[in-house]
Each structure stands twice: as C-alpha cells, then as structure tokens.
C-alpha cells in the first residue's frame, strides 16, 4: 500500500509550505499584508500537519521509501523588490498547488478505504488550501501590473 508514502509527502509538503510562507513573511516584511497573511497561512499549514498526525501514526510514515522526486522543497531564500515579491508568490502557488493536489490524492484513497477519520481531516484541509491559493492569486493579480510595468 502506497498511502503512507503519500501521507509522508503531504506531511513534508505542508511543512515546506509553512516554512516558505514564513520565509516570504520575513523577507517581504515591508509589505504588511504579505507579512501578516503569510504568517497566518503558515500557522494554518502547521495546524493541518497536526491534524494529520494521528493518521500518520496509524498508517506509519515510510520516509525512506519515498521516491526522491516526490519531495517538495521549501523556498531557499526570499527575493527582493516588487518583481521578487511576484516570483516568491508564484513559488508559493507552486508549492500550495502540490499540497492541494496531494490532498486530492489522499482524499480519493480515504474514500476507497472508508476511513472516516482521514476523510474528516481532508474535509477540513481542502477548502483551506484552496483559499490559500485564492489569496495568492488575488495578491499576484493586483501586484503584477505595477511590478512589470512601473517598478523602478
């Protein structure tokens, strides 16, 4: 059964997303909304990690067996400036999309397993992740013209 591999992937993906939100919050601290919301969203990711813990304990993680290519890497460092912010937000979209898609995969497996506990965790998590993506998209849309056309 490969579910534990995917649960591990989800776990590490959420951690990477949380760390990346924190990194962007820190690196773009002069953008107060980015700072504040990225911190809030990082906390959400960590809550999802915590909610996943009992399920992970039940199925057991198999980190050693994970194919290396499935790993999500957190952002290494925040960029600077208006275009840098745009690129960092795009990187967050990529990570959040992977997380989102991983929840979808796990959701499907949970239905096949009739695992109500896991389904409850998924139902909590999925709308939250979609919302994180929606915020990132909203912020990117408003920032893009100024960054690409007018930034010094």
């Amino acid at each position: 059964m490969h579910l534990p591999v995917y649960l591990g992937l989800l776990d590490s993906g959420e951690q990477a997303l949380a760390d990346s939100f924190d990194l962007v919050a820190e690196g773009h601290g002069d953008e107060p909304d980015v700072r504040q919301l990225c911190r809030t969203l990082a906390a959400q990711c960590r809550e999802r990690v915590a909610a996943l813990r009992p399920v992970l304990d039940r199925y057991g993680e198999k980190p050693a067996a994970e194919p290396e290519r499935l790993h999500a890497e957190a952002l290494p460092a925040a960029r600077t400036g208006a275009v840098g912010l745009l690129r960092d937000l795009q990187d967050l979209v990529l990570l959040a999309t992977l997380v989102d898609s991983s929840w979808t995969v796990v959701c499907q497996a949970a239905q096949g397993l009739r695992d109500r506990e896991l389904l409850a965790v998924v139902c909590q998590a999925q709308p939250q992740v979609s919302n994180q993506l929606a915020w990132l998209t909203t912020r990117i849309k408003s920032a893009a013209p100024q960054a690409l056309l007018a930034a010094a």
Partner: peptide, 8 residues
C-alpha cells in the same frame, strides 16, 4: 474570504 481577502 473574510480571513485573507482572497477574491471570489
């Protein structure tokens, strides 16, 4: 979204 301001 009232928490983040994400546009519907």
């Amino acid at each position: 979204d009232l928490l983040t301001g994400a546009a519907v």
